[in-house]
């Protein structure tokens, strides 16, 4: 099999994160400011007297998290290196920045490095800030029965950040926002499939190779292999293999409602995502499940991976109201 070489718009691999954060803030001077030393992106006008929302993690998942900083969502985003947790020291600095006197909520995707560094940061900041944490672990492909690190955190992070952001903006206290965040996690599951892997900045080879007749099922957001390989098929057939396990795991029944996130993993183009969205709606409608709201786009990516994930969050009226609340960030605005 011939191996096509990936080319990228980069200068030097070591400069990728700093230059990209600078570009994001230059494009959004009305929304964002940057602390380049600690790689913190925060609101240009800090909120006052509300629960501060901090998230972050490895880079390579853009627009998560810095593109979701703004009114109605995050206060501060902390960027690590590509696919590597930010340091405890960075997260501590971000926590202090996010605090406006009502405490800070950490929204953490479930990976060993992220969990450890956010936990240490909370402890380092404990004399100055009250911190609570929501651990996002929505990826159905990594459900384990024998201990281990548990399910990975993927695209449900967007739903958690949106809903918690709305509550914080409305003046809810820290424990209320944290409890709602955990509730959203419990109601959310995701599953992803990829047609092609991703390549790190500066590397010309993808993380894994796929023959033309197979797709990688159950991929995460770090270019790792999935749970297995299944035959390549039409969009409608592939989407069915994502949606069925989600419906089953969430025990969705006729009459239930969901928020659906159809998420591109990097190089999946909008036409493809719209076709996937159509099939998600058709499959759920056939089961009598109402799609209360849909978000389609590339929000939680894995560099240039050609893949897509579907996230379903069991919704009630209160959740939909929080979802509909105004938001103004570089990547999500209504």
């Amino acid at each position: 099999m011939s191996t096509p070489t990936r080319r990228q718009f980069i200068n030097a691999p070591d400069d990728v994160i700093d230059e990209a954060l600078e570009g994001l803030v230059l494009a959004n001077p009305h929304l964002l400011k940057l602390d380049p030393a600690e790689r913190l992106v925060s609101r240009v006008t800090p909120a006052t007297k509300k629960v501060g929302l901090l998230s972050g993690g490895g880079s390579g998942h853009e627009p998560l998290h810095a593109g979701l900083v703004g009114t109605g969502m995050l206060d501060v985003a902390v960027a690590g290196a590509v696919f590597a947790s930010p340091t405890a020291s960075q997260v501590r600095a971000g926590t202090l920045l996010a605090d406006s006197g009502a405490g800070v909520l950490h929204i953490v995707k479930n990976y060993t490095g992220d969990v450890l560094n956010f936990q240490i940061a909370a402890e380092l900041a404990e004399d100055d800030v009250v911190v609570e944490s929501v651990l996002v672990d929505d990826d159905l492909a990594t459900t384990s029965t024998n201990g281990g690190p548990g399910r990975r955190g993927t695209a449900a992070t967007v739903v958690v950040e949106k809903v918690c952001g709305a509550l914080a903006e409305a003046g809810a206290d820290l424990s209320t926002v944290a409890a709602r965040g955990r509730d959203v996690v419990a109601r959310s599951r995701s599953l992803a499939v990829a047609l092609d892997s991703c390549a790190h900045p500066g590397q010309s080879q993808p993380a894994f190779e796929l023959p033309d007749d197979l797709v990688e099922f159950g991929v995460g957001i770090h270019g790792e292999r999935g749970t297995g390989r299944i035959p390549f098929a039409s969009a409608d057939e592939l989407v069915e293999q994502l949606v069925d396990p989600l419906v089953q795991d969430l025990s969705l029944r006729s009459g239930d409602g969901v928020i659906a996130v159809i998420n591109g993993l990097g190089s999946t183009y909008p036409l493809e995502l719209a076709i996937i969205t159509r099939q998600v709606h058709r499959l759920l409608a056939a089961r009598g499940i109402t799609v209360a709201r849909t978000l389609t786009g590339s929000y939680v990516t894995s560099l240039d991976m050609h893949g897509a994930s579907v996230t379903l969050t069991v919704a009630d009226d209160e959740l939909v109201r929080a979802w509909d609340a105004p938001v103004r960030t570089p990547s999500l605005t209504w």
Binding site: G80, A81, A84, S85, T87, A88, S89, Q90, R92, T112, G113, L116, N117, I120, E123, L124
Partner: peptide
Amino acid sequence: FLATGGTSGPLFGM
């Protein structure tokens, strides 16, 4: 150590 990536660095730091 707490300003270092990975998991060993922050554990040594604490």
